[in-house]
Every structure is written in structure tokens, then in C-alpha cells.
Design a protein around this nucleic acid. Structure first.
Length: 296
DNA sequence: CCACAGGCCTGCAGGC
DNA sequence: TGCCTGCAGGCCTGTG
């Protein structure tokens, strides 16, 4: 259930292995994940070198030496693990309680930095993840990427740009922040955490943070600061490890220990001086955690 | 059996 | 009629 911090942590773990490495063999152990693999998918990758491993929103983007891009989304339960052999990979996965029935893709790699080669294994029990190959120059026009919103990182998430996108919208702040065409990379955990930090109710109308002249209100400036901060803090902690997510080297993220509201229903609000109790509500089918006392 | 889980696409209904 | 918006449902498997 990787959100941006988990995907970024995976990227940092995989980059030293993938960058400069060649796909010697790509093994698809089933014909589909969320979508069927396109015909020739594995063969199209074999023999190609990874130039760089990047990220956009919750997508991992492996740029290939011929200009194409392997785009990978982890869905709700996707994870990668790295090993120098099949046996080591399986032992590692086993230790993490992973079921090898859900090992769906195996990349066999070689490279100057990989004496003896390496294997990168993709495991995804729920199969909401997917991999696609985008031909050179096609990324910006691709329907999955063309409408992605602002990255929630310093310098990219501009309050007035966000105000322009929220103006007039009656939908809840919770739903707006989950909308990947507005801000790209937030998910259910970090929306709750950011709104708690900002002291804003998840039920508030998104457009209520925009001034009449169309610019960002003080509250919206504060919210953008809190979004950037919570994402940066989570990346620094290696993301959050709950049920499925582990880092590429098998270690756990630590940010789950820093949650202020997420999954803390009925617990005391942790804001100094606030005597509220954390509540859970369901918005557009997803749990929201918030303090009704200090989030208005 | 039920509810719920970190994502996101589709289709439908309602408002203008 | 169209366009936009917002929401329920569905995709899968696993866990409590």
C-alpha cells in the first residue's frame, strides 16, 4: 500500500542494483497483474540496460538505454526484494512471511556493479499493481501520466497553484487530497496525517481554503507546508511498514511509529493541550482518522 | 460469515 | 443535450 514515501524508499533501495544493470532475463510467472502484460513485454526488456531509476507520484520509472520507460505501480500490496541468487531471494521472502505463490515477476540482472549477477523479484498478493512499457517520448502523453498533479515536495507544491485547482470545489478536503490529478502521491495514511498536522477537518469543503481572489488562504499555505513536511519526514524514516510493505533490502520503514492519528481510533489526540479523542469516519469508502476537537 | 486493508479505474446519477 | 463532479462498486487476496 505504498504511498509516495514507500515508493521513494523502494526507489532508493533498487537504484544501486538496477542502474547500469542489464536485464538478462525477465520471467513472467503469470500472464497478468492488474492488467495483462502486453505481448512481447519480457522480450522487449531483455538485453536493455537501465539508465536511471526515477519516480513520479506512486510510479517507479526505469529509464532504459533506448529511451523507453518501464513504469511500475505497486498497487496495494506490491513489493520488491533483491538477492544475489534465487535461493537467497526465496529465503529472504520466506523470512518476511511472503508467499512465493505471489512472486509474479523475476528480473535476472548482470552488470559491472553486480559480480555474479542479481535478482529482483516482484511479489504482489492482491495484484492491484502493474507494469507497462512506454516508448520513447510517450510518457507525458500517456493517459496514466498526462493528468498527474503536483508532487508534494518542497518547491513543487505551490499554494497558489493548488488554490487554482481547489477553487469552487465542494468535495471534502479528504477526497481532494486523495485525487491524484490535484496532488500526486498522497494516499490514505498521509492525507489523514497531513490534515491533523494542519488542524483542518477532513470534512471541510476543499474550495473553502481559497480566497475570493483565487489565491491561497493562510490555512491553505499552512496545509501545503504540512503536506510537504509529513512526506519529507516519512521518506526520511524509510516509509511506513504495516502489513505488506518492506524495503527492497528487507528492512522495515519506521514512520508508522510517528503516526499522530492514522489507525488510532479512540486514542487521545496527541496535540499538546488538546483533550480530543481520535475518531474514524468513512469518506468515499475509505477510513479517515481525525480529531474532531482540534481539526476544524 | 463479516469488515477491513497503504490504490485506482469504470460507470452512473445528479446539477448546471 | 452536453459537461462536470462526486460517489459506489469492483478488482484481488489475506487477516482478524
Amino acid at each position: 500500500m505504498p504511498e509516495l514515501p514507500e515508493v521513494e524508499t523502494v526507489r532508493r533501495g533498487l537504484a544501486p542494483v538496477l542502474e547500469g544493470a542489464v536485464f538478462d532475463r525477465v520471467e513472467l510467472r503469470r500472464p497478468d497483474l492488474r492488467f495483462p502484460f502486453p505481448p512481447g513485454f519480457a522480450g522487449r526488456l531483455e538485453g536493455r540496460t537501465v539508465a536511471a531509476l526515477g519516480r513520479r507520484a506512486k510510479y517507479l520509472l526505469a529509464g532504459l538505454d533506448d529511451g523507453a520507460t518501464l513504469a511500475m505501480h505497486l498497487g496495494m500490496s506490491g513489493s520488491f526484494r533483491v538477492a544475489d541468487s534465487v535461493a537467497a531471494a526465496d529465503a529472504f521472502h520466506h523470512a518476511r512471511g511472503k508467499d512465493e505463490r505471489h512472486d509474479h515477476v523475476v528480473f535476472a540482472l548482470s552488470g559491472a556493479r553486480l559480480p555474479g549477477g542479481a535478482r529482483v523479484v516482484y511479489n504482489d498478493p492482491r495484484r492491484f499493481g502493474f507494469m507497462i512499457l512506454v516508448e520513447p517520448g510517450g510518457l507525458e502523453r500517456h493517459p496514466l501520466f498526462a493528468h498527474l498533479g503536483l508532487e508534494p515536495v518542497a518547491g513543487a507544491l505551490d499554494p497558489d497553484a493548488l488554490a487554482a485547482r481547489l477553487a469552487g470545489r465542494t468535495t471534502s478536503l479528504k477526497a481532494a487530497l486523495l485525487d491524484q490529478t490535484l496532488i500526486a502521491g498522497l494516499g490514505n495514511i498521509y492525507v489523514s496525517e497531513a490534515l491533523w498536522r494542519a488542524g483542518l477537518s477532513p470534512r471541510r469543503a476543499a474550495g473553502s481554503l481559497v480566497r475570493k481572489d483565487g489565491r491561497a488562504s493562510g490555512r491553505l499555505v499552512r496545509l501545503t507546508e504540512c503536506i510537504v513536511a509529513v512526506i519529507a519526514d516519512a521518506v526520511a524514516a524509510g516509509g511506513s511498514s504495516l502489513r505488506d510493505y518492506v524495503r527492497a533490502d528487507g528492512s522495515l520503514g519506521m514512520f508508522q511509529h510517528a503516526f499522530r492519528v492514522y489507525d488510532r481510533e479512540d486514542g487521545p489526540c496527541l496535540r499538546p493541550g488538546c483533550r480530543g479523542v481520535v475518531r474514524r469516519l468513512v469518506q468515499t469508502g475509505r477510513s479517515t482518522f481525525y480529531c474532531p476537537v482540534c481539526q476544524r
